[in-house]
């Protein structure tokens, strides 16, 4: 499947996308080693607040979820929970080669290999790990994608929910979290 390039948004959606593009709140959930690239991206050297981006505390408040590196099956369950708690429109940016093809964990029994089978990734950042320059560049790309209406992975997730659920269940067997400390 290719990216949908035709633009069939109405005026309200275009205005809404302008606001969404210029005010992106990240979910502060660090799944892998790439999370250490974010403090320099946030602080004075690169300063992502110039782009209107900032960290938020909970998935309900956030617009973009950053998958910063490898995802173990255990984390993937929590990520799916968190992603489904986020409010539309929502975006996913995946960091590094681990999310693309497993990276150095290609043969691990606990980490997944191909993230976009499970949740709709809008943008990948290549590298192991991507430096803050690459992260800033990717955020600029994400902003232009949102402005053009191309970052609609969340809509694709709603439309192909069964396909994503099937992939999730194939790998995880069960998405529901059984946790002895919370039951």
């Amino acid at each position: 499947m290719v990216l949908e390039n035709q633009d069939n948004r109405n005026l309200w959606e275009k205005i809404g996308d302008y606001f969404s593009a210029n005010s992106i709140w990240m979910k502060w959930y660090c799944t892998g080693c790439g999370a250490i690239e974010l403090p320099p991206t946030m602080t004075s050297r690169f300063d992502m607040e110039r782009l209107g981006m900032g960290p938020m505390a909970t998935p309900r408040q956030a617009d973009v979820m950053l998958i910063t590196g490898y995802l173990s099956t255990k984390t993937l369950r929590r990520v799916i929970y968190s992603y489904e708690q986020m409010q539309d429109p929502k975006y996913i940016v995946a960091f590094g080669s681990c999310t693309i093809n497993g990276g150095v964990y290609y043969d691990s029994y606990a980490t997944i290999n191909q993230l976009d089978k499970y949740i709709p990734v809008d943008l990948y950042i290549a590298g192991c790990m991507p430096r803050p320059e690459a992260v800033m560049n990717a955020f600029a790309d994400l902003i232009s994608m949102i402005k053009k209406g191309q970052a609609n992975g969340w809509r694709h997730y709603q439309e192909n929910y069964e396909w994503y659920k099937k992939n999730q269940l194939d790998s995880l067997e069960e998405v529901i979290i059984h946790d002895e400390f919370h039951e």
């Binding site: 606001f19 969404s20 602080t43 004075s44 607040e49 110039r50 209107g52 539309d88």
Partner: peptide
């Protein structure tokens, strides 16, 4: 927010960023 950013030696957001944040939040589903 810009003053805060300058205290932290950052450039800071646009001066109308707070409006963008509010209207963006109003635009989202809930």
């Amino acid at each position: 927010r810009k003053v805060t950013a300058r205290i932290q030696k950052r450039y800071g957001p646009r001066w109308y960023q707070q409006f963008l944040d509010i209207f963006k939040a109003l635009r989202k589903s809930s």
